[in-house]
Design a protein around this nucleic acid. Structure first.
Lengths: 234, 234
DNA sequence: ACAAAAGTGTTGAGTATACACCCATGA
DNA sequence: TCATGGGTGTATACTCAACACTTTTGT
């Protein structure tokens, strides 16, 4: 390993403003939702947008995203995935800014309501979204596509559910992720065959009079190779 | 649409150096290879690295990547995919730099040899790579994983082959992408069933005395939904 | 003639799909 | 008692995986 000259700089090169923007998904037992925010600064103040911020020099990109999420939702330790970076020269009308896109999956019931009100945020059905500023609409499209792809390979949908959930709820979740309908018998069979959820003695009675058994997600699942690829083949 | 105040700036925020680094893959009829370069600047001058450069303010990120590829390989209009952006605070020992990772797929025979020599570059078998500078090793790992994932869903492997190729060559390509062996009868059956390649009257005799028929990739393929998901189920 | 790679079919196993009725309960 | 969603089984079609021999031709 060579020693680095401590006076070396790359200073002849141009620096660029870097932002981080995050699509926040939630699930309300019916439809997949996204949390949108009214922009608080000029330009385009008051328009709907993703939550975002400029990246500071002393924060890693992922820590920047985590900090935004903490500030806007009150949540830490949530599922977070980097998408790609948006870098068109004129994507921001004010100045050149590149933006690293993320999406995160949160449990809607854990969301801090105060935060939401402070930030003038609102949940939207992903099919009923308003116009978003800049290229945030593309970011959301990409986020949904990436989430759909990943959810086929890995059991990440569980990050949207409370600790205890019923199989009909789980089905409804995957149906709203992929915007399709499934046969309940086949869905149940498939999910149980994966050995990734565990039945409890508890019943949820909010959905029906009969009540449905609650399950929990097994955390230390060891998926077989095949299953890792084709978890839910929507 | 609101008018934007032309004097508005985000100038209180910190700017950051942004680089672009690209994993270049090729296929030599036997194994999947990656093109590595000896770094031309301090620090770590002379060490093996991906090709990369700082992003200029007047270039979009993808154009920055294309420019690097043009300069280093002489090729334009090549398959290029953005990975993710690497943003650890100390990833570069000199100064804070974030780097947008890409991978590209090129036809090894179209590569401009002069460029390669000028840049002190070399093809490495992906299983026999040297140590790379900084986090470039991670970038390559991510690039391989992303390529493997994408190649399962979309017929992008063809970007590594010449216009005319044989089925045994195609099989060998996918075997080296996924580091596995397949049964030749099953592979042929599967590929032909996808209806994405077209037989020609030509034969390639370099691989055997009998010769193998050459095929071309159908450009305007319309894949069915299912096939789009599970092209090659490795 | 023989070495070396190309090309060709069938069978069995496993997985996905289609499909309809009974159960438990609160109102 | 009845309306509502929860829970269960079987038969069929399809797709993947395993498997071995013949063909062509340059040397």
């Amino acid at each position: 390993m060579k020693l680095i000259n401590p006076h070396l700089k790359y200073s002849t090169h141009q620096k660029i403003l870097v932002a981080v923007d995050c699509s926040i998904f939630g699930f309300d037992s019916k439809t997949l939702k996204i949390l949108l925010f009214r922009r608080k600064v000029e330009p385009l103040k008051g328009e709907w947008s993703l939550i975002g911020a400029f990246l500071q020099n002393d924060l890693s990109i992922v820590d920047g995203a985590k900090q935004i999420l903490l500030e806007s939702t009150g949540l830490s330790d949530i599922y977070l995935e980097q998408l790609r970076t948006y870098g068109a020269v004129k994507r921001d009308p004010v100045e050149r800014v590149i933006s690293v896109g993320f999406y995160s999956l949160i449990r809607i019931d854990e969301l801090n309501i105060r935060s939401v009100e402070d930030f003038d945020a609102k949940w939207f059905d992903i099919n009923e979204m308003p116009e978003l500023i800049l290229d945030h609409g593309d970011m959301v499209k990409d986020a949904i596509a990436a989430f759909q792809l990943k959810a086929r390979h890995e059991p990440i949908g569980f990050n949207l559910l409370p600790e205890h959930f019923t199989i009909p709820q789980l089905q409804s979740l995957y149906e709203s992720i992929y915007q399709t309908k499934r046969d309940s018998r086949n869905f149940r069979k498939k999910v149980l065959s994966l050995n990734i959820i565990e039945k409890t003695d508890l019943k949820d009675k909010t959905g029906s009079k009969k009540g449905a058994f609650l399950y929990t997600f097994k955390k230390k699942v060891k998926l077989k190779n095949k299953e890792r690829h084709f978890l839910f083949d929507f």
